[in-house]
Design a protein around this nucleic acid. Sequence first.
DNA 1: GTAATTGCAAAAGATTTGCCCCATT
DNA 2: AATGGGGCAAATCTTTTGCAATTAC
Lengths: 132, 132
Amino acid sequence: MANRRGSKQREAILRILQSTDIHPTADWIYDQVRKVIPNISLGTVYRNLNLLKDEGLIKEVTIYGSSSARYDANLEPHHHFICLVCNSVYDLPVQDENVNVSHLVSGRDFKIKFVKLDIFGICDKCQAKEAN
Amino acid sequence: MANRRGSKQREAILRILQSTDIHPTADWIYDQVRKVIPNISLGTVYRNLNLLKDEGLIKEVTIYGSSSARYDANLEPHHHFICLVCNSVYDLPVQDENVNVSHLVSGRDFKIKFVKLDIFGICDKCQAKEAN
DNA sequence: GTAATTGCAAAAGATTTGCCCCATT
DNA sequence: AATGGGGCAAATCTTTTGCAATTAC
């Protein structure tokens, strides 16, 4: 790993990401950091998100249908529930009984490393709204 | 559905997509169509991919780590296996025993509509290469 | 004839990069 | 002084769009 100096920009970005669970875009993070460091640039936000990703402190999340990358500081293994109405992304902890997928590749000589599971549907809040 | 006129461009794009299983990008499709219709433009490829998607004849596929959208004419429900070495995407038919995910949202009032499952690992061909 | 479709080029949106200055060691 | 990091703007990449010309019905 490259030598790394402290940087209040990078620390602020990490802190913001750790304090939310909405899996924000770089742009959303940019808006938040500017409240603390008004003259920070968007390029710096992207650069530091990539650095934090390289260090393994955050993860980049690809959500189907989202035109930009989203970021996540939740390092626990988890799945995602994506609401088709409000597009919110909820974390779902991995249960003891892990999702069993080996039967899906039976007959093929594939070595499984990890699984990415996204569940799409309607969240509680949007169901309540629809009922009105 | 909007009125739609025949178009040799759209037909060629669909035929190309139906004849491959590599889940290509718009750009790859563009290269292929140009062999048949040399002066077709990339804009036309994108426009027709979106029209075909609206008609439900093809699907757009979001692959984690791929910077551009990929397209798929396989309409059967299926999962994906993505090789971490060569980035190939393989289709995995949905088995009788569907992936059970309801326990993952137990305790939450979420209505599940569908599931997107990507399995990451190393494909047979790349395992063979590594062995050398 | 009319409306869908095209090619082209410009625009738009997301992300990366080059460059020069500033800050930290 | 050396070097990591930042700000800014330009560049890049993917995708969309406006427009005038063409084509299918």
